[in-house]
Design a protein around this nucleic acid. Structure first.
Lengths: 161, 161
DNA sequence: TGGACTATGTTATAACGTAACACCCGGTCA
DNA sequence: TGACCGGGTGTTACGTTATAACATAGTCCA
């Protein structure tokens, strides 16, 4: 079980365990798909996992550069693209940024709650929020972007504006 | 009544009327709010209204430039920002682009159906798609981004891949 | 008519993203 | 074994999207 992965809220019980679990799931998933979680890709995933906030591609790149793992934009974009393609990370359109997937095991159409004060991003499930209007319009959905911006519970207490 | 404004689907009966109506509503709304729909802002809104597809800020800027109305990015971004702020246009995060609002009268939390084949964007209503998970997480929503990408009815017929 | 405010014009640069090609490395197959 | 093949990474160069900061001009009103 993956109880320590943050899931649906803004807290995870034990973040080190949360990261370890997520990396394990990622390894298994790559194995199953016959793709390689190389050192670079794994490190990028770890970097994303270290924070509950999203990171821009250039933020990730700065970390890689500091560690001698790469300094040019395509290095970061390629690794992030790999993670997104394989469901190990998600792109937050609103922020032009990336977060590690909080539920790497399950197929899902994720939705995100983005705190504008602290930057934390919680992954949750959408249900099929747009199915009804899409069906009414005869539209065939392939992908959805569901993002809410606002204040997380902690930031509603005084820190908020 | 605004029957000719496209609303919820990919067709509007009479696009010229649709544009005229939308401009009229925009004028009334600016009047009511005590803000000015200047020639530039009005022209940008017309440019957006001319297409059911979204336009990038630089696409709009190219049109303005061709008409001698401005050639530098801030000119376009400021006008677009004004329209978005006053509910006369919306930003499509997925595309880094803008569309005219299809329902400028009503307060709404819009959702969008984006055809990846023809670029048409239909505005629809979200309901309160993310309310439940947000409430469960104690998150206070201020704004939502709800966008679905796929194929519009016309593009599902043969033109689709 | 001058002051305050809003809008527009302009420069310069920041932030985000990718095409294209060079190189390297591990596997495999004649 | 060495030629090749494919995926991954390194690098250059550039394209696209967006904004800060300051200058100028129009509008309103006392």
């Amino acid at each position: 079980m993956q109880a320590s992965i943050r899931s649906g809220g803004f807290a995870c019980g034990d973040h080190a365990a949360c990261i370890r679990t997520a990396i394990g799931v990622a390894e298994a998933r790559c194995e199953a798909r016959g793709v390689r979680l190389t050192a670079l890709r794994r490190r990028v995933l770890e970097i994303l996992l270290e924070s509950h906030a999203s990171m821009g591609a250039y933020d990730v790149l700065a970390r890689l550069d500091a560690e001698g793992l790469g300094s040019k934009p395509p290095v970061a974009y390629r690794a992030l693209g790999f993670l997104v393609d394989h469901g190990l990370a998600h792109r937050i359109e609103r922020l032009n940024a990336y977060v590690a997937c909080a539920r790497p095991g399950a197929a899902h159409d994720p939705a995100f709650l983005i705190c504008r004060a602290c930057g934390a991003v919680a992954e949750t499930t959408s249900g099929t929020a747009l199915s009804r209007p899409a069906a009414a319009a005869g539209f065939m959905i392939e992908q959805t972007v569901l993002e809410a911006e606002g204040l997380c519970p902690a930031c509603q207490q005084g820190r908020a504006s």
